[in-house]
Amino acid sequence: MPTEKILEILFMYFKAFAVGGAICVIAQIIINITSLTSGKILVFFMLGGVVLTALGLYQPLVDFAGAGATVPISGFGYLLANGAIKGAEKGFFYAVTGSLTAASAGVTAAVVFSFIMSLLFHSKTKRN
């Protein structure tokens, strides 16, 4: 592989780390200041992703940082909004169903794996 390509890949890792980390830091600052619970943080960031995507602001971030923008929960919002936007081009039916279709992989995985884990594991008490 040429050196240029390797440098590009390394730079991409760096960008993913920086952008993903930065999104988490924003969430952490909000938690520190307002002491919101984790569920609320997840909802707000997901909604933030939806709104930014609808405004066309999230796509550039995804192009720039790759997984740094898609792995945080705001990327889940991006997925939902993107699905809806793409569906809207095909017709009203797809405009309504497009978001959940796009998110189906994540939701299915979470449900199926969680169910399997609940069969395999017991909840453990904490000592610290």
Binding site: T37, S38, S123, K124, K126
Partner: peptide, 8 residues
Amino acid sequence: YPLELGCT
């Protein structure tokens, strides 16, 4: 919360 939930 549930014990396994990763919250601070």
